[in-house]
């Protein structure tokens, strides 16, 4: 049911009956899947009308709201997990979003396209902004305004005082252990406020 590679890993980290908040939940398939397989009780935040409708169709709790305006609707520590799946790179203020995740959740999970992936580096060397499976847009119409590498994200975690619990870099579903920041196209981090 869950097709995206990061979803499988996220699902493996989340214990049964957890309380989950999915920021930028899209069509809600991650939450719907977690509810079906893990008995998770979750909420999704989504700003886009079409995605909101898709989430309602998938029967998930979805709240139309702008993540960037904060998570004021949610109390401190209200969730076991707060997930930000391939959305960080489109945030205007990624640092604030990360801080909000640490406030409302016991643990945070972030996945993002790794700008350090070798094909991206090659595109830049060739004189062009990268276009790939994880970064499918052209520079002039991309929603991705804050792209980063795996190493960059590690730095941001340090800056906001997040303790990294797990860090994976994958490519097409396979975990990359050797030179991950070069060979992996998708970074997946699990962290908490120590």
């Amino acid at each position: 049911m869950m097709q995206r590679h990061d979803f499988e890993l996220i699902a493996s980290w989340i214990p049964e009956r957890s309380r989950v908040l999915d920021l930028g939940c899209g069509d809600g398939v991650l939450l719907a899947g977690l509810a079906a397989t893990h008995g998770v009780h979750g909420y999704g935040i989504e700003i886009d009308d079409a995605n909101l409708l898709a989430s309602v169709k998938n029967g998930v709790n979805v709240i139309q709201s702008d993540i960037e305006e904060g998570l004021a609707a949610f109390g401190e520590g209200a969730f076991d997990f707060v997930i930000l799946s391939q959305t960080l790179q489109a945030m205007r203020n990624a640092e604030r979003v990360l801080n909000e995740m640490l406030r409302v959740g016991r643990e945070g999970i972030v996945t993002f396209p790794n700008f350090g992936y070798w094909r991206h580096r090659l595109d830049i060397l060739g004189g062009h902004m990268p276009v790939s499976k994880t970064l499918p847009h052209a520079w002039w119409n991309t929603p991705n305004i804050h792209l980063c590498t795996v190493k960059d994200f590690e730095d941001l975690c340090r800056k906001v005082g997040a303790e990294i619990l797990d860090e994976r870099v994958i490519h097409e579903g396979k975990s990359i252990r050797v030179l991950p920041n070069l060979r992996g196209s998708l970074g997946i981090f699990r962290f908490r406020r120590p």
Partner: peptide, 21 residues
């Protein structure tokens, strides 16, 4: 409406919320 949604979430109720243009 957001006040309602916030209260529903705080008590773990199932809710879908749309802000329609």
């Amino acid at each position: 409406s957001r006040e309602i949604v916030k209260a529903l979430v705080a008590t773990g109720k199932d809710v879908a919320y749309a802000e329609i243009d």
